Deep mutational scan, measured.
Amino acid sequence: TFVEFNGKKVEYPTPEAAEKAAKKLAKKLNLKVTKKNGNYKLE
């Protein structure tokens, strides 16, 4: 499962880990999380 932000793509071993990381990053970077095709994107 990938988390995409600032043009970077980071892969996580589980969807749970990706979701957790996405939410944490979104909060830190003041972005919102969108889920697309099972992957997460911060914008």
Score class of each variant (00 low, 15 high):
T1G: 07
T1N: 12
T1Y: 15
T1D: 02
T1H: 13
T1W: 15
F2C: 08
F2W: 14
F2G: 03
V3T: 01
V3S: 01
V3L: 07
E4I: 12
F5V: 07
F5H: 06
F5G: 01
F5Y: 13
N6F: 14
N6W: 13
N6D: 09
N6I: 06
G7H: 06
K8G: 07
K8D: 06
K8E: 09
K9W: 12
K9M: 12
K9P: 04
V10A: 07
V10T: 12
V10Q: 09
V10F: 14
E11I: 14
E11V: 14
E11P: 11
E11W: 15
Y12S: 00
Y12I: 01
Y12P: 00
Y12V: 00
Y12H: 04
P13I: 06
T14R: 03
T14F: 04
T14L: 02
T14H: 05
P15C: 05
P15Q: 12
P15L: 08
P15A: 13
E16L: 10
E16T: 08
E16D: 09
A17C: 08
A17W: 06
A17D: 10
A17T: 07
E19M: 10
K20D: 10
K20Y: 12
A21F: 08
A21M: 07
A21P: 00
A22D: 00
A22L: 03
K23Q: 13
K23G: 08
K24S: 13
L25D: 01
A26T: 02
A26E: 03
A26K: 02
A26S: 06
A26M: 04
K27G: 08
K27E: 12
K27S: 10
K28M: 13
K28G: 06
K28H: 11
K28W: 11
L29C: 10
L29R: 05
N30D: 07
N30A: 07
L31E: 01
L31A: 06
K32D: 04
K32C: 10
V33Q: 02
K35H: 10
K36M: 14
K36N: 14
K36C: 10
K36E: 15
N37E: 11
N37A: 08
N37Y: 06
N37S: 07
N37G: 11
G38A: 04
G38N: 08
G38R: 05
N39A: 11
N39C: 12
Y40N: 02
Y40R: 02
Y40V: 04
K41D: 04
K41T: 14
K41H: 15
K41A: 10
K41W: 15
L42R: 00
E43D: 08
E43L: 09
